[in-house]
Structure formats: C-alpha cells, structure tokens
C-alpha cells in the first residue's frame, strides 16, 4: 500500500452524512429543501416584511408589482405579497391534516376489510362506489352541504381520499396473511393484536408513508380547486385558491393576481410530489427503476 493513497480513502470515509444523503437521494433532498423553506415561510409569515393581508387600500387598486407592493395589489388594494405568504398556511395545514386523517381512517378500515371476509365484500363495494365519482365532484358536493370552514374543507377532501388508503392496506394484509411467518405466529398462539402490531403494520408503514405524501399533494390541489370554485375555504381567509378566484376576472389586466398564487401552489405541490417519488425509491428499491 502506498502512503499517498491513504489520505484519499479517509477523506472519502469522512464525507459528511448530509452530503452523502444528498448524493444518494437527490429527489428527497430537493423536496425536503423546498418544503422546509415553505414551512418556514408559513410559520414566520408575520416577520417576512408582510402587512395585514386583509388591509384595504382603495388608492392602490390592481397595481402591478412594484417596490411598494412586491407582488402588486388586488382589486381592493390589498397587498398580494402578504396574502400569498399567509396563504401558504392554508395549503400546508389542509395538506397535512388530510394526509394524517385519511391515512388513519383508511388504515383502520383497510385492516378490518383485510381480516374479516364478510366485511370485506361490503366495504370494497362502497370503496368502488366512492372511487367511481371524481374526487373533485365528491368534495364540492359535500361542501355544498355544510357551512364553509377549514375543518369542513378537510373532511370533504378526506372522504374521496380514503379509498386509496383502504385498497393499499387491504392488499398488504391479504398478502401478509398468507405468509409463513404470520401463520407461524398465529399457530403458536400469538394474540391477534400482537400479530397486527408486530407483523402486519410494520410492513405497511413504508407504502403508507409514500401514499400519505401523494394524498397530501392531491389534497392541496383539491383545496385550491374548492376555494377557486367558491365552495372551499371561506373568502375571509386568504388561501391561494381564494386569491385566484377573486383575481380570475382580471386575467387580462392583472395577471399577477393569478400568476403568483398559481406559482406558489405549483411549487408546493411539486415539493411534496418530489418527496413522495424520492421516498418511494428509498423505501422500495425494487420500484426504483420502474416508475
């Protein structure tokens, strides 16, 4: 061994874990980085040179982006930059809430359907029915029934998203139930809840995390669509969909009212999708070359 070769190998070994992670999982890193910036933006909104997003200023209506109003102003003279920054709170909250709630409910239903055969047939027919109706349509129909609030928006989006989780969990359960290690565990008298906690759920976690990420992305788009159509987040809350709904009639004269919120929404959903794609590759290397 030559002496000169030594420093090189140690340098290689000493590469920081962060650089190593970036090199191995560029997609996850990119998604996480954009998400981190967006979350910081949402949390720190009051300190990011914003003003009250509801403050009217009739003297400055429909003004293009300038030094005074970085993203321009809307038809009531409200500062678009402040509204877009505060709007990130709605998208992130709804995305996260829907992903968590839909995953929990879907997992519960999926487990029951996977284990109890007589429930399975019934549950899956209901899920097929829910899946035959486009998610947007189902959500707006549900919204038409209730008074608009952030909670009702979350519920209206959770319902069309649940079948995706149910199908996933059920298929995992059905595959695992036939496996030798589960049969063995049952044969030696392991209690049901222990089989569930020790053998079934751990195997479902990886695909569930990936699915939850995609649900989060889809929920953000759905929230914006609902708000845009006038059946979502109350207009008093500045959400990206609401800003675009109010700006739509000014598409010819004030495109910034649609462009800026649209850009931020796309960027946010893109970050979540990148995270989902990256996590899928990371957690299931077999899928890596496929999708």
């Amino acid at each position: 061994m030559t002496v000169a070769a030594l420093p090189e190998t140690t340098a290689r070994r000493r590469r920081s874990p962060l650089t190593e992670a970036i090199r191995r999982h560029p997609t996850v890193t990119a998604g996480l980085a954009i998400m981190a910036v967006l979350v910081a933006m949402a949390v720190l909104a009051p300190y990011l040179w914003t003003i009250d997003p509801m403050k009217l200023d009739p003297r400055f209506r429909l003004k293009p982006p300038s030094e005074r109003n970085w993203f321009g102003t809307d038809h009531l003279g409200r500062d678009l930059y402040s509204r877009v920054i505060y709007g990130s709170r709605v998208s992130l909250q709804v995305g996260l809430a829907v992903a968590v709630v839909a995953t929990l409910i879907g997992t519960a239903i999926g487990l029951v359907a996977g284990f109890l055969r007589w429930v399975d047939a019934l549950v899956m027919r209901v899920m097929d029915g829910l899946m035959a109706v486009p998610g947007v349509l189902l959500a707006i129909a549900l919204m038409a029934l209730t008074r608009a609030s952030l909670e009702t928006v979350v519920i209206a989006i959770v319902i069309p998203e649940v079948p995706r989780v149910v199908r996933l969990v059920r298929s995992v359960v059905l595959t695992l139930r036939e496996q030798a290690f589960v049969e063995a565990a049952e044969a030696i008298g392991t209690r049901f809840h222990r089989v569930l906690a020790k053998h079934i759920l751990p195997n479902a976690v990886a695909p569930l995390i990936v699915q939850a990420t995609y649900i989060c992305a889809s929920a953000m788009i759905l929230e914006a669509i609902l708000s845009f159509l006038g059946a979502g987040t109350p207009p008093t809350i500045p959400s990206w969909g609401n800003i675009m709904a109010e700006g739509r009639q000014y598409v010819r004269v004030a495109f910034w009212l649609l462009g800026f919120p649209g850009l931020f929404l796309t960027l946010t959903v893109l970050a979540v999708n990148l995270l989902g794609d990256g996590l899928r590759d990371m957690l299931d290397p077999r899928m890596r070359r496929r999708l």
């Binding site: 992305a217 649609l258 649209g262 796309t266 959903v269 999708n273």
Partner: peptide, 22 residues
C-alpha cells in the same frame, strides 16, 4: 411528468389564456 402532476389545472388554464389569448 412530475411537474405535470403538480400544476393545478386552473392555474395552468389561466397561464395558457394569458400567454396565447392575452
């Protein structure tokens, strides 16, 4: 393709209107 999944249809719609029609 990832970008295509991420851009909401109404945002893209208005962008196209702005570019091609306005």
């Amino acid at each position: 393709a990832v970008l295509g999944f991420s851009v909401p249809v109404f945002a893209l719609g208005y962008f196209l209107i702005w570019v091609f029609a306005v």
